[in-house]
């Protein structure tokens, strides 16, 4: 195996290996999706919500003004526009941004089975932090 140390011994723990395997698959899925949707966007196979010419006139605006000018929304409302070429790319971006949460959920049972209370708590807290960030309830803006 390419990822094994030169001496062939295994130094990674069970939970570390499980995390790595899921991260690997999730990362690959995210990249392939991102490249495929971007090609569809670039080649005009799916009409964008914001046209290419218009985008070039607006990308120098702060995000708040950009959203106002394009009728865009915050949070998960992009899902309603996911058929559009530009927003279609958010599927791959969300996969790449979400895989870490899935990896943490994968190792949670392993820490529970090992009765490792501290790392069980750390895993749960990290999932909560990432889910909070992903939820869209945190509002910021100029």
């Amino acid at each position: 195996m390419a990822d094994m140390p030169d001496n062939g011994k295994q130094y990674a723990s069970e939970e570390q290996l499980a995390y790595a395997v899921w991260l690997d698959w999730g990362m690959k899925l995210g990249f392939v999706t991102l490249v495929a949707t971007f090609l569809a966007y670039l080649l005009g196979l799916a009409a964008p919500h914001v046209g290419h010419e218009q985008l070039a006139q607006l990308w120098s605006l702060p995000v708040g003004e950009y959203l106002k000018a394009t009728g865009g929304h915050t949070g998960w409302s992009w899902l309603s526009l996911v058929g559009r070429g530009d927003y279609m790319n958010f599927i791959g971006i969300a996969l790449l941004s979400g895989i870490t949460i899935v990896c943490y959920l994968r190792i949670l049972p392993l820490f529970l089975a090992a009765k490792d209370r501290v790392f069980t708590a750390i895993t749960v807290l990290e999932v909560l932090v990432l889910v909070l960030a992903a939820s869209g309830v945190l509002v910021a803006g100029h």
Binding site: L23, L34, V35, T37, F38, Y41, H52, L55, W59, V63, Y66, L67, G72, H73, T74, G75, W76, D86, N89, F90, I93, A94, S97, G98, T100, I101, E126, V129, L130, A133, A134, S135, G136, L138, V139, A140, G141
Partner: peptide, 27 residues
């Protein structure tokens, strides 16, 4: 991969990720 995930979600949810800038950069 963990730390940037949390911040990336905030930027994504605020609409501060544009595919036309992000994807060519990433590739």
């Amino acid at each position: 991969s963990i730390v940037d995930t949390s911040a990336a979600w905030v930027y994504l949810n605020q609409g501060a990720v544009l595919a036309m800038i992000t994807v060519p950069s990433l590739i």
